[in-house]
Design a protein around this nucleic acid. Structure first.
Lengths: 221, 221
DNA sequence: GGCCGCCTCCCCCGTGCGGGGGAAGCTGGG
DNA sequence: CCCAGCTTCCCCCGCACGGGGGAGGCGGCC
């Protein structure tokens, strides 16, 4: 098994050199390049094709986020491990968005860094504990809104809910009738009773409550 | 500084005993109780008030998820670290939802376990690398859909966009006219041209594209 | 100057929509 | 057994909605 090929990206020369030396102490690691900004990073990675890129965020010119985004859009991209001083950065979410596999703080121990490199090289992911905590909290928050189809929606019968869902797809009454294989008159009564139960005026407002209540979720179609 | 108080929950006696012995090797840990199912776990935690609970998921009777949910609803709850054999479990999301601070696989090393306990005791969070990877991917996916107010929406004039946004609040034409302080006829022409540009039939469909495109976001009101 | 895009308002006209009734069959529970 | 709730369908009616087409004022751009 060959060594994990690593590129180090940091605008501070000392820091970069320190990481190179540190990583070189591990027999299964091979530092194959380094860069001081985003442009250099992209160029060197495309030439060296490393397994893992240790990426700083704050850099003059192209920052680590944008560099990550570009690298990840290549075919067979490297795994990117973000290494930064500040965890309170908004950049965390942007970095994960850009496709980073890991997010470590510079106060991590050498052992943690080695672990992290091996984990992302294996295609897994690892985040600093504080970052994990925020991500988990954020994730739970996102899920909470997405599973409270509550309002007065439980008052609806199954058929009424079904009709509401189709209205929220933008269908007209005749279209809904066709979809459900019933008469249009039937649909109209379902719609009327649904609107009355929810205290709404028209189908437009019905679409709004369907989305706001979480009955339907953007992107699920 | 006092030791971290730990409760071990697992339905298999040997496993439970093994973890107790393992944790006892650390001078800053103190195992203050153990349980073989969810009910016992809740009872013992309320009596012992540990800092950290090592929780198995699969157990007879009340499972680890439900036990976690109940513990977390208490005042000053312990931190819960889930320890399970299967990472492919759907339970991961449920566990995080229930409020767990960590999620480890049983194939983790002793050192990783100790680290994890110390991290969650400190109020941070830690997940197994495979779980982290899935969470990061899921998180990125969630965010992607939330920032693409693109479609053909740029073709709309500012006024048309404004009208679309109000339609997506469930307002009728007269209401929109009042809100914008213009005549109803004016609103009608904006609506008509907006629908034509987007290739839509009625305001109901307009609400759908407003939500699906990200022009409006559920919960922002 | 002339042109064009946007916002504003006006007309007519057809119809999809929603309210107000009523009625049938079917299910399940007291 | 009968009643209640759900689903299905029917009638009539009024109106908000949306299409078509036209027009004036105002700003920017060539």
């Amino acid at each position: 098994m060959t060594a994990t090929r690593i590129v180090v990206v940091d605008d501070q020369d000392v820091v970069r050199a320190a990481f190179e030396v540190l990583l070189a102490t591990q027999p299964d690691f091979a530092v194959v390049g380094s860069a001081a900004d985003g442009e250099q990073a992209v160029r060197i990675c495309r030439a060296q094709r490393p397994d893992v890129v240790l990426m700083d965020i704050r850099m003059p010119g192209m920052d680590g986020i944008e560099a990550t985004r570009r690298l990840l859009s290549d075919p067979e991209p490297p795994r990117v491990l973000i290494l930064t001083t500040f965890d309170l950065d908004e950049h965390v979410y942007d970095a994960l968005d850009a496709g980073a596999s890991g997010f470590l703080l510079k106060d991590a121990t050498a052992e943690h860094l080695f672990d992290a490199v091996r984990i992302v090289a294996a295609g897994q992911a690892l985040l600093a504990p504080t970052v994990t905590r925020r991500l988990v909290a954020e994730f739970a928050r996102m899920r909470v809104r997405r599973r409270e189809p509550d309002a007065a929606l439980h008052a609806l019968t199954t058929r009424e809910t079904e009709v509401l869902r189709l209205i929220a797809e933008g269908l007209s009454n005749p279209e809904i009738a066709a979809r459900l294989v019933v008469g249009e008159e039937t649909v109209k009564s379902h719609v009327s009773r649904m609107l009355a139960k929810l205290g709404l005026r028209d189908r437009t407002q019905a679409v709004v409550v369907a989305y706001e209540s979480g009955l339907v979720v953007p992107g699920d179609r």
